[in-house]
Amino acid sequence: MLFDYAPILILFGLVLGFAVSNVLISELLGRRRKAIGKETAYECGMGAIGNARLRLSIHFYLVAVLFILFDVESLLLIPWAATANEFAQAGVGTTVFLEVVGFVLVLGVGLAYVWRKGGLSWDR
């Protein structure tokens, strides 16, 4: 089983080598010239105002939380999806499907609630 993953380890070695050497090569070969203001953050030609470590809109946080909720849902659906045909052949397809429907409905209600509360409208 674990043996199947060995070629991926080889690819990982190649990819890591490529990525690290890419970052290092221009660090070593690129030229360096100092100039006033070169290291300030780009703000359309003006001097940078303040720091970029800001407090930001809660929207981004809400999206992340919603993502986790629905990602776990799809994660739990994966084992069923891969075996739905076998359940049908064993004659328990309908029972298993109804259980999945119940599970998805609970999360569907959750989605409807968030939608109704305006959690999905970005401009609110």
């Binding site: 720091n51 981004f60 999206v63 992340a64 993502f67 799809s74």
Partner: peptide, 23 residues
């Protein structure tokens, strides 16, 4: 990590977009 406002906003937007469409 860039400490630039454009980078920060771009990074947040990109991550919000990528996780939303991953579902």
């Amino acid at each position: 990590s860039s400490n630039s406002k454009y980078s920060l906003m771009g990074g947040l937007r990109a991550s919000a977009q990528m996780i939303s469409y991953e579902l």
